[in-house]
Amino acid sequence: MNHSAHSTYIARDKIFTAARLLGVFLLFLWALLAASAAYAVVSDYATYGKYFATFLRGAGTTLLLVGISLLIGAVLSLPLALARNSNTLLPRFLAYCYVYFFRGTPLIAQTFLVYYGFGGFREFFSTVHLWWLFRDPFYCALLVFSLNTAAYQAEILRGAIASVPRGQTEAGRAMGLSPLMIFFKITLPQALIIALRPYGNEIIIMIKGSAIASIITVFDLMGETRRTFSRTFDYNTYLLAALMYLVMVETLRRVWVKLEQRLTRHLLR
């Protein structure tokens, strides 16, 4: 994939050497960064071992937060996507506003709006017995992330449903299936396969975005990192956290590629 058509034209002799020099220099910089962080960790492995254990607990919180949000978001996204495709104006308009709001504003601002904004309405939430939800920062983060990812997942799903060929629905109708049956047995499964790749991206975006929870006192991986940094001012703690995020994201990405290959193998000829 890297051997693009034009590369042979760029790489004339003179530039080839320059490219090699630059490449070696940049790789050297990356290696230097990795080596200096590795050296710091090895030379004081007792301390970093302790950090690592704490960070693992934080990573657990991160995965829990992201996992539950994605599930709730998936459930919410179905009616949203259907409303976005609806023939009636009102649900279409409301779903459009919902999606536009959550995609048009920063996740961090939404988080503050719910955590600090709704925190001011304690009496109201107590009377409707919902204060337990807004009292806890973890639940607040869960709520915001779920609502946010629901908007993005709804758009993914809507696009995917729209791209399932019309003939599929018509075939279902010709076979005398009910509309509900057609949707759940014919349209949705095909749409989900089309949506597989954007879903994978959405999961990665959520893992990364979840670091925001640390600002509202949740001790996720980022929260534990900031707590450790604030006591030690050791820059390597950030690099250690970066490595852990990278491992999470890269593992997921690779697993997802395999999953996609497996689920779409019937499409290959």
Binding site: G119, P137, T217
Partner: peptide
């Protein structure tokens, strides 16, 4: 123990009962 960036935030959360 919950950690806040400035005292203003913990004051808000003590006031609203979090």
């Amino acid at each position: 123990v919950r950690l806040y960036p400035t005292p203003d935030e913990y004051k808000l959360d003590l006031e609203n009962g979090r």
